[in-house]
Design a protein around this nucleic acid. Sequence first.
DNA 1: CGTCCACAGGAACCCGTGGCAT
DNA 2: ATGCCACGGGTTCCTGTGGACG
Length: 340
Amino acid sequence: MIVDGRVLREDFVPSEVVHRHDEVNLLSESLEPLLSDRRADPAFLFGPTGVGKTCIARYALGQLREQEPSIDVAYVNCWQEYTRFRVLYGVLEAVGRTVDIHRSTPKDELFDRLRETDARPVVVILDEVDQLEETAALYDLHRLGHVSLVLIANREEELFASFDDRVRSRLRAGTRVRFDRYGTDELAAILAERAEKALEPGAVSDGQLRTIADAASGDARVGIGILRSAARRASRRGLESVTDDVLEAAIPDARTAIRRETVEGLIEHQRVLYDVIAEAGEIDPGDLYDEYERRVDDPKTERTLRNYLTKMVHYDLIEAVGERRGRTYRLVGDDAVGRE
DNA sequence: CGTCCACAGGAACCCGTGGCAT
DNA sequence: ATGCCACGGGTTCCTGTGGACG
């Protein structure tokens, strides 16, 4: 029943956008200078999770490249690439200049490398910029005359609060595009669009799509997640269409579906840590390390565990309460709908 | 108040892997 | 097959910090 699973993936960019024309137009306008070989002011996309910020950014840039193929586009997700080095590296990768670079390469050389690419304009999309730990990367990129920035984040105030003065003053100008949550109707329309491309005709009814949209409460990512999960369950059972009880089974994980996928992506040792934390509810580091060592045959060093833990915090799976001594770890609250 | 301890996280290094030329 | 090299995960070593405790 699944015809094209790619359409249900999170990073899928539709060829037509539904319900976001104003936002697309605003962003496209702000990028217009690039068409006459000038640099665009930074563009900001703000809004909660699952409202199409990333999707619209990619879509708009895709259109821009159709008009002007000489423009390079670099997409960097600061959720994963949160250091200055990794961001610069990510941009270089997009313009194909990563040969010979490794960890020991001085950062300034990365910067120089980027400077040398100024023959072609580059648009750098930084997704989840609020996760960036070294805003120096922004300063670097802004210094480069051929780089235009598209920055994606949840909230404007918080984003600017995390900037240092240098960066803040430089990025004050620029277009703000704000995204609101989808209404049930809008989300249902989006899901219908996806279902039409991804699934066989009639695989899912309009009523079911509304049910999904409702359960997702305005978050397209959750909605698409439910749809995907329902379609997979149905096809695993050899069904021709999504039945209501399949859908019923897919919805309860609405809130946790995305997290579960992330958890499944964890390597074994990280999973053990996760499990220990989940079972304990809240646990301090010493006990956590001890329990981990008890459960695993070939335990990693504590230092490595700390790396795992910070990574899991970044993935929003767990949170660390407090600093240094007296810190505890626990799962992020279930009331947290994504990060906001 | 000084010392100790628990913990976080940076820097340098080590080592296995995998691509590539020889 | 052999050696080289980039690269990344993991480890070792280490510094900084702030609460606990004598």
